[in-house]
Nucleic acid binder design. Structure first.
Lengths: 235, 235
DNA sequence: TAATGCAATATTGGATCCAATAACCGGACT
DNA sequence: AGTCCGGTTATTGGATCCAATATTGCATTA
């Protein structure tokens, strides 16, 4: 394991991170068996942290237990991914409704407006620059996180945290993630513009405490991420 | 650890079960520090499975990391519990809606009707017998499980599985769980009758594919469990 | 040639061992 | 008397060791 990050991070957590990366990045393809020894050698750690990482990833659903033969990388169908996106919509929608009904604080609204201002700088320019995606992913993540946390509902926050670990399910994954070709970039821009418009309506509804409206807006907003499935997963 | 159940269960899982029991049963009170060695001695196992169990329970939210001092039992406020019940309502409501919209199979409807018939035998008698609670918990659990699985949405099922591990959050916990006094028993019966009526309406709505209706019915149905909070947690 | 049984091997899972380090206690100094 | 410092101890976290067991490959035989 690269000792570059002993930074306050338990070894087992570094392994979890690394393995997630390998799985989501496709280096460990679905169905691939994951044994302790090869992984521990590959990462240069002992079997102990690897074993713990495997149980954690199994809990998250990225690995499935294969009887006495350890684990295999779980195969997610296109339906599984769409379902996870739907669940995110349900949960984030509920979060937005709860926040709206509780009466959003002025700070929250201000922070959301800031996200929108930052987002506008990217979405409303005619030229879609190099690393505009990563900037937008950051802004978008901030926007969603603010709303989820504004729900002030721990169970809801935890449920979403779990869901976000599923492939393509998190809000951060709207743009897919790979290095985009020119064609993909155009698609990115389209999605991004629509997402920005959604954000505006969501904050408006939130300000007016329109709980039901903000809930359905948020649900539909999540479905923007479905384009990735058809783009990256032709099955 | 009692070797009575080496039954296909990894030691670490037995430890998880046992610790959950101790925590939810109040033997490990909130705030109590949980160190590896005392637990391993108490259960008669080595530290290895205990350590793994602790990370799992931390993932579930029952323990919280306490820096370098291991873990402590997480303290759930009354609000936390009500929030978790609300989340269950949201998720089970969504599950019911999805099942209704997809068109419930005749087998599903039949199985649900069976639950209702079994439940009627308990709810509609004038005398509320000894272990009627445990029978009803079983029937109720079956009812809810059928609907959740009928959603055929793995992400949803997983999210609910996580939520159900929080104290008092699962459908099985409607009746609280302790050995009830006579007064509590009367309260039980009231709740049970209302739950039974809810179940009937839910199946009716499901049969008619009334997605929105079954969703809100299910959400409200979950809130029946809130009585336990006021009953058992005066904070 | 195919099936079967035995042996060699690979692999998991738990127990133990060791190092790092943070909390704790006591004493000395201001 | 209070505070700071140093040593002792407790405790986590990773590495290694060992036992149990399933899997695989090979040889033998019908």
């Amino acid at each position: 394991m690269t000792k570059s990050a002993p930074a306050e991070l338990k070894l087992r957590e570094q392994v979890v991170l690394k393995l997630r990366e390998l799985i989501l990045g496709g280096e460990l393809p679905a169905g691939q068996r994951v044994a302790e020894i090869p992984i521990s050698e590959r990462l240069g750690v002992s079997r102990t942290p690897v074993r713990q990482a495997l149980t954690i990833l199994a809990q998250e659903g990225l690995l499935s237990a294969a009887g006495k033969r350890g684990y295999v990388v779980h195969a997610f169908s296109a339906k599984d991914i769409i379902d996870a996106i739907e669940v995110r919509g349900i949960l984030e929608g509920a979060a937005a409704r709860l926040a709206a009904e509780a009466g959003p604080s002025e700070e929250l609204l201000q922070a959301l407006e800031n996200c929108i201002a930052d987002g506008a700088a990217i979405a409303l320019q005619d030229h879609y620059g190099m690393d505009d995606d990563v900037r937008w992913v950051e802004i978008n993540g901030r926007f969603h996180r603010l709303i989820v946390e504004a729900s002030a509902n721990m169970a809801l926050i935890s449920a979403l945290a779990l869901n976000n670990k599923l492939p393509f399910a998190s809000a951060e994954a709207v743009l897919g993630g790979g290095t985009p070709s020119r064609q993909i970039a155009r698609r990115h821009h389209e999605v991004l513009v629509r997402a920005h418009a959604d954000h505006q309506k969501i904050v408006e509804a939130m300000r007016l405490r329109q709980g039901a409206r903000v809930e359905s807006l948020m649900q539909e907003h999540a479905r923007l991420a479905e384009v990735n499935v058809t783009l990256f997963r032709p099955d």
